[in-house]
Amino acid sequence: MFHDPRDGLVGLALAATGAGALWIARRYPAGTAADLGPGFLPGILGALLLLLGLLMAAGACRGPRTPFPVLQLRPLLAVLGGVVLFGLLLRSAGLLVASSALVLLASAGLRGAGWRVALIEAVVLGVLAVAVFVHGLGLRLPVWPAGLPWN
């Protein structure tokens, strides 16, 4: 159906986003000319994005045939998963553990990175983060996991 499946899918996704924005915006009052309501701009933008998305999808049905780009899951999971893990650990397990976990997980994003090097880097960067951010810049964060005797 699409000659350029990439643009076709992006167009459809954008159109769906626009439609969603439009659907949610119907709950916001549009107001009057002298007192525009919170729904005025969202309505216009939602409709515009819907239109642009459909145009893009329509354009993808013509033109030269192009292959679909490759999406690699490994870096995606390692990097973004690392960020989420860091957020989850930060307040409960402390900066040291959270930083090291982030570095370890992120290092797994690249095939063939030795785990020994990653482990050393995790510890070094964890200590560095504590030194710079907690001691240097005075960021308010626990360093150690909660419940340790010296806390």
Binding site: V79, S99, G109, L125
Partner: peptide
């Protein structure tokens, strides 16, 4: 080595 540090 660089990218985990940047990420952190």
């Amino acid at each position: 080595l660089l990218y985990p540090a940047i990420l952190l």
